[in-house]
Design a binder for these strands. Structure first.
Lengths: 199, 199
DNA sequence: TCGAATAGTTACCGACCGGTCACACCTATG
DNA sequence: CATAGGTGTGACCGGTCGGTAACTATTCGA
C-alpha cells in the first residue's frame, strides 16, 4: 500500500477530474476539497484563490500531455512519418476514450473574462502542441507542413467539440480517416533525382 | 423611429448576446433582464426558468443560421460546387468577424449535466447543419461526400475553438486554405465515358 | 522531547444566484 | 370611463458561492 499523496497533489488531481466532469464554473472549491478528502481551509493554504487552482490544474494536465510527445518519438525513432500517423491514432484513441474533450480548450471556452490568468496557460499549451506537430510534419517531408499541421490541429479540436455537441455518431466518427486523408493529400509526390534538384 | 420590440423579443436577443460574451453560466438572469431594459419579473412571466431561456436563445440563434442556407442556394443556383466554396468562404468570414465561436457548440461545452434541455436544441442544430453540408458535398459530386463533409465540419468547429484558445494567429488563420485543400483532394478525377460506365 | 509546521474542524462573512411575492402602473379596448 | 392584461418595482426567500478567522489535532525533524 502506497503512502497517501500529499494534500496539495490530491487537490490538484481531484480538481482536474471535477473540472473535466462538471466544468470549471460548475464545481465549487468546497466540493473539490471534500472530494480530495481534505477541506477548504487546506485548499486555501496551498492556493491563493480558485483562479490559482484552475491555473495549477490546467498546468498539471498540460504536463501530462507533454510526456506523450517523448513517448511518441521513442516509439518510432527517426521515422517522422510513422510518428505522425502514430500521433493521429493516439488522438483518435483519446477521442474514443474521453467524453469530455480537451480540458484546456474547454477552459478557453468557459473563461471568457479576458485577462484571466488561465489564458496564458492555455495559450502556452496549445502553441507548444502546435509547434511540435508542425515540426513533425516538416520532418516528415510533406509538401506544406504548416498547412497540414494546422489542418490536423483543427480536425482534432473540432472532433472533440463535435463529439460533445453531436455525440459519437457525428463527424468525430470519421476523425481518423479525415486525418489520414489529409496527410495523404500532402505527401510529396515521389520525385526523380533530377526533379528534386530542379525544384 | 421604429416601435420598440416587445419585451420578450428584447430578452431573447439580449440573452443571446450576453451568453455569447460571458458564457451561459457567467451571466445571471437579473443582468439579462436589466440589459434588455426590463426586469426579472417580466422575464419569468415569459420563461419558466433560466434553462427555458437558454433553450429559447439557442433556438433563436439556430434559426438565424438556418436562413443562411437558403441565401447560399440562391447565390449559386444549380451549382453545388460553387455553393460549397461559398459556404467555406462564409464560414471563414464568420470566423474572422466573431471572436466568441459558435454559441451552440460553446453551450455544449458549458452545459455538461446530461439531460439538460439545451442538449436537444444543440444536437438538432448541429445535425441539421451537417446533413445540409453533406447533401452539398454529395451534389457537388466529390468522391467521398460523407468524409469531406465531416472533415469540413470538424475544421469549422476546430477553427472556432482554436481561435478562442490560441488567438487569431493560430491554426484558424489557415482555415480557408485548409478547407479548399480538403475539397480539392476529394474532387472526382475527370473520367472518360468508358471509365464512368465501368465504375 | 519539544517546537514548529502542516492539516483538520467549525463557524462565519458578504455577495450573488435562480426564483417568487404583492402591489402599483400603464395603456388599450370595450 | 371602466376594466383587464401586460409591465414595472422592490422586497424577499433559501441556497450556494468564494474566501476567512480562530482553534485544535497531527506529524515530524532538531
Amino acid at each position: 500500500m502506497q503512502a497517501r499523496q500529499a494534500p496539495r497533489d490530491r487537490i490538484v488531481s481531484t480538481a482536474c477530474e471535477l473540472f473535466r466532469q462538471h466544468g470549471i464554473r460548475g464545481i465549487g472549491v468546497d466540493a473539490i476539497a471534500e472530494a480530495a478528502e481534505t477541506n477548504k481551509m487546506t485548499l486555501y493554504r496551498h492556493f491563493g484563490s480558485k483562479d490559482d487552482l484552475i491555473c495549477e490544474a490546467l498546468r498539471f494536465t498540460s504536463e501530462k500531455a507533454a510526456a506523450f510527445w517523448d513517448q511518441l518519438e521513442a516509439s518510432h525513432p527517426n521515422d517522422p512519418m510513422a510518428q505522425l500517423h502514430s500521433w493521429v491514432e493516439a488522438r483518435a484513441q483519446c477521442l474514443a476514450d474521453n467524453q469530455y474533450g480537451c480540458d484546456l480548450a474547454n477552459a478557453a471556452v468557459e473563461l471568457k473574462e479576458q485577462g484571466h490568468p488561465a489564458h496564458a496557460v492555455i495559450e502556452n499549451f496549445k502553441i507548444t502542441q502546435q509547434r511540435r506537430l508542425e515540426k513533425l510534419c516538416r520532418d516528415a517531408g510533406v509538401s506544406e507542413p504548416e498547412l497540414l499541421s494546422d489542418t490536423l490541429s483543427m480536425l482534432m479540436e473540432g472532433a472533440q467539440v463535435s463529439k460533445l455537441a453531436t455525440g459519437s455518431e457525428g463527424p468525430s466518427m470519421r476523425f481518423l480517416r479525415a486525418c489520414q486523408a489529409a496527410i495523404a493529400s500532402f505527401r510529396q509526390p515521389v520525385k526523380s533525382a533530377a526533379e528534386t534538384v530542379s525544384a
